[in-house]
Each structure stands twice: as C-alpha cells, then as structure tokens.
Design a protein around this nucleic acid. Structure first.
Lengths: 338, 338
DNA sequence: TTGAAAGCGATACCAG
DNA sequence: CTGGTATCGCTTTCAA
C-alpha cells in the first residue's frame, strides 16, 4: 500500500482498496452520479482507512477552477482597508473559497497582481478594494468575475458610498452648529489608480457651503495624505497662518486625528475653539471621541464578497452598483463656535 | 488558431505556432536545459503573439507545489496581528509565493484551516501567527514546512519576544519612577490555543515587584480581553474599589487605551494621578502619547516569512527560535506618583 | 450502477 | 540541442 506515512494516498489507492474504479470513488466524493449504497459504504470505509483527502490542485486542473478569490487591496494604506478585508473574510466563511491576498502599494505591484490574476487561473474571481483598475487591466481580466469595493465603475459591479453626500453631511453638521469658517482637509489627487474619494467629499463640502451662500476659500482647502503626521503638520500650518477656521472637516479619521494633534500641540481647545469632523468611523475614532461620518467598512467587504459569490454561482447580478448608507456620528469634537 | 479572445492559449499552441515541441517551449519558459538562440527567439515571439502565459494550476500539479504560503491568523483580534501580516506580505514580495489568508476566530475555523492546509496541497508552507497549534494538528501537517510567529515551540521554528523581560521592563520603569502601588491588566487565560503572552508578562511584572521586595497584590492583577471597552470597565472597577494604584501596566496598548478612557471618565489625571504603560506600540499608541513596550510587530512577520522561505528553499534552519528585541518607549502617560 | 480511458496543462526523462 | 511521451491526481464522457 502506498498510503503509509510520508505518502499521501491518491484516489487510485482508495479505488484499489475498495475494489472499485476511480470513477466510482470520484462519484461518491462529489455526490454526482449514482452509486449503490453498498459500494458507497465500502468506498467511504476505504477513504477513512487510508485517511484520504483529494488533492485540490488536481481537482482544480480538471475542473478548471481554483476555488480561490483574489483580493487586491492597498493593504498598508489605512485601517479602513483592513476593516473591509475583514468583511470579505467573514463573507467567505462557509463558502468553499479561500482568499488570496495581493497587496498593491506601488503601481508596479498592481500591474503584477493583475497580470497574475488576469490569467484567470490563480483565482476564480476578483475583489478589488479601494482601487480603480485602469481599463486595460480590466480588459485583461477577460471573463474573470470581478467586484469593486469602495470604487465606482460603470462596467464592473461595485459597492460604494455617496461621498458627495458624506461631505455634505459633515459640513452641514458644522453649519448647523453655527460655524461659518470651515476648512477641509483631503488627500492628494489619488496616486495613479487609487480610488479618489476625496474629490467627491470636497464637492459635498463645497455644495453644503454654497447652499448657505458661503464661498469655499482656497486657503482653507488643504491636501495631505492618509497619514496622521502629514495631516498634523498641514493642520499646524492651517491653524497658524492667516485667518483661523473655527472648524475642520477631514476626509478621513486618520487625518482628523492629525488635526486633533495639531490643535493639542498649539494649545487650541477642541471643541471650544475648534471643531473637528472625520470620516469613516474607524475603531480609534470612538477612543478619540471624534465626531465623524460613519461608513460601513466591514459591510462593504462583506457585501462585495457576497456579490462575487453570487456571480461565481452563475447568478446574474441585478444590481451593478450597491450604495451603502452613511451616518453622522456626533461625539465630542464638535460644538458651536466659541 | 485557438488563441483568439475567449480561449487562453496553452503551451501546445505555442509549440505548434513556433514549430517546436512542447518540451522546448517549457525549456525557454523555465530557463532550464539549453535552447539555441534561434529557437528561443522563435518561441518567445510565438509566446508574445499568442499572449501566452502558463497555467499555474497545471504547473503546480506537475511540480507538486502550489507557490502559495498559507497564513493562519486570528485576524480580527487585534491591530498587532494585522501589522504582523503586513510584515509577511512585505517579505513575500519578490518571492514567487502568493499569500493565502486563513482567519481563525473560532477553534472550529482553526481546525478547518489545518485540515485544509495539512493536506499539503493548498500551500507549500505555513505561517502561524499568535497561535499555538495543538500537537495533533501539528502532526497532521506532516512534512509541511511551518513557522510560528509570536508563539513559542520546541519543535517548530518560531519568532518570539521575551515577554517576561517585557513585563519586567514596563514594571521596572514604573518602579524607577517611584511607584509602589502598581496594578496589572492582562488577558484571560488564552481561549483554547491562542498564544498566551499575558502569562509571561504577568510573570515579568511579578518578578520586577519581588526584586524590590514588593508582593504582587491579587486585587491589582486583573484579567480582561483584547478589547478596549472591556478593559475600560475593568479599569473603572479597579480604580474605584479598594486602595487605588498609582500606576497600571497593561498587557497591550489596546487595553492601556481602555485604562486611559477609564481614568478620563473618572476625572483621574494621567500621568498626574495615574501612570499607564502599554505593550506593543501599535500606531495609535503614539497618538495617545502612551508609554509602552515596543515589540517589532512588522518585523516578526517579515522574519517569520523569511525563515519559511529559507526552509522552502531547502536550507536547513539553524536558528529554531528567533527572539526579537523589546524596547521601552517613554511618552507622556508615565511620571512619578503624585 | 460501474469501469476504462480521455482529457486538464504543465514538467522532465529519455532518446535521437 | 530537440522532440516524444509518461506523469501529476482528479473529473467526466462513453460503453458495458
């Protein structure tokens, strides 16, 4: 017998042991075709005895599928991506699919990931998080099912939030409190293909201001990165040069924390002298008592993965684009202007 | 020609197109064996024309390897696991290996993951993070190369820190500042197989106290979970019942944040009336100005992955266990007792 | 209900 | 140098 310690047993071993053909073993394994109860029992017994379990690689080659879902994500960037991936993991639980993680910090890594995955035999489906794949990469994907999480698209199914609305939500909250000198801190125009949610949030900010007859002041619209320290130094500049705003709306919680740090270091009281609103509602936000616009990070991943599973199951996706709700969470960093 | 849109081209297509045998194509593909410059050029041209790229599944079956590394990690638990995974991702960059992520919140999920991976044909190697696989699961792994990150073992290569020393480091810092009433907040005895770093940190805490002739007081040694809110309520209890400690050493930054929250809500000044030390030095720690014991989270993943790659390359691992350094980072949450 | 045999798409040995 | 062919382990016709 080949199946002694060291050598995994193969389907042929089981067949031999049970005195049947491999086809029969395959049938009981997959529940397809019919097998007499008697034979089935014998096969199952052999499987047990030989401690057999099928090779997924061989099965994949034969079935032409991999049973893995590729997740492409700028992993390092932010806590919010991680939270989204968590949602994906949760959705995949119970499905037969494994998750292969592709981090794509650089445009180069991104190209490589799409190269690899595009071939369609590393993964059966693709989940792209917070990234807008350029058309040519999308094209290379061929018929590989793909869903975008936190990135819009007219061709590819996606799950998003209404960032314009989110920007309005935050800004209106500050306006309602009586603020009129409201600054905005967003990201730089996205590096290559990262999804640029900032632009829409800026638009929401501007619309809200204009709705009450205010004109956005360029010197109060700043661009940083999703990095607390960068945000902090930009905020320090913002708060010490020119007329000081009474409130800041930051395009992410991370940046909002940077603003809070800046205020702290400058001895500016929050929310007494300065109100701050963030975006995302990541875990730390509640620790910092940050007023913020909550978006369903975990759910975005969960729903994206569910859509992909649906597509993988051959179902037609009725909803090409799913928009998740936003919600203002008022905590302790906003108050009427001093 | 078969290679028109829709059908991927196979090695046989390339061979036919170039007028050579498949073996030759395989040779130029893998750089093994020798091929005349002329033939090589023709083959490469055909590859280009047909936009061919090899099927990794087929290759895997043939080579009997998957080119994926399985990472088993209690992903949801804490930011520190995430940071470790980041290190792994970084180390895998440039290697031919992909990363398959297996989250194992429940013991059930864990069993499933080891079942799947143990077969040895979902992954070529295993990285287990912050988990001590029970012996029987380890046994099932057979000859699958495996490295433990943040978990000790005498059988399996692993990368760890000296938690006892870490506990001492934190506690000695408080003692040096003049504190004598020092409390400790750790985790519950680990659920099933999660690695229990708390126990060692507690030991370090106790040793440091005893070294200066103090006896640890049971009512000042509390157990919570890696959850800020739980830690907070435990801390509130700790700080309002019985004699109040002048300092708290928490077994993780997350828990330290919970303690800070509790102090804040009780109107206890930090570090004026209460000093707090954490453990890990996760990103938020610097925001909160938390004094903490820094451990190389990212590097633990990076080094663990490097060890695994080494093993995968057939090199003998000289160091079975690699201990990473700890460092006290003094920030603003510790001061001499009021 | 069952078994033999033809793929799936590579790699690598063995001749030539 | 190069081509034919067995092999990897499973699924799935096609006959019996």
């Amino acid at each position: 017998m080949e199946s002694l310690p060291g050598g995994q047993s193969r389907i042929a071993d089981v067949a031999a042991h049970a005195g049947v053909g491999v086809a029969t073993v395959s049938r009981v394994l997959n529940g397809r075709g019919s097998v007499s109860p008697d034979t089935r029992a014998r096969v199952l017994e052999s499987i047990r005895v030989l401690d057999y379990s099928p090779s997924s690689v061989a099965r994949n080659l034969s079935l032409r599928r991999t049973l893995v879902i590729g997740v492409v994500v700028p992993f390092f960037t932010s806590p919010s991506s991680v939270e989204r991936v968590r949602g994906v993991v949760a959705a995949l639980e119970g499905s037969p699919y494994d998750l292969a993680l592709f981090d794509v910090e650089s445009a180069d890594r991104q190209r490589r990931a799409f190269d690899l995955l595009g071939r369609g035999d590393r993964a059966d489906g693709l989940l792209v998080v917070s990234l807008v794949p350029p058309p040519e990469e999308l094209a290379r994907l061929g018929s590989l099912p793909c869903v975008l999480v936190d990135a819009p698209s007219i061709e590819v199914p996606n799950v998003v939030v209404d960032d314009v609305f989110g920007g309005e939500l935050a800004t209106r909250h500050l306006l309602d409190l009586g603020h009129r000198r409201i600054a905005f801190m967003g990201d730089k125009p996205a590096d290559r293909f990262r999804f640029d949610s900032t632009r829409d949030r800026t638009k929401g900010y501007e619309q809200a201001l204009e709705a009450v007859g205010l004109t956005p002041r360029p010197e109060w619209v700043r661009e940083g990165t999703q990095n607390r320290h960068v945000a902090r130094s930009i905020a320090e500049d913002l708060l010490t040069h020119g007329e000081r705003p009474t409130a800041v709306f930051a395009a992410s919680d991370i940046q909002a924390l940077g603003v809070l740090e800046a205020a702290r270091s400058l001895g500016i009281a929050v929310p007494g002298e300065l109100s701050v609103v963030g975006f995302d509602d990541i875990e730390i936000a509640s620790y910092a008592n940050l007023t913020t616009v909550r978006q369903p990070l975990f759910d975005s991943g969960r729903i994206g993965a569910a859509l992909l599973l649906q597509a993988l199951a051959g179902e037609e996706l009725l909803t090409r684009s799913r928009t998740l709700p936003l919600e203002l969470v008022v905590r302790a960093t906003t108050a009427p202007p001093g």
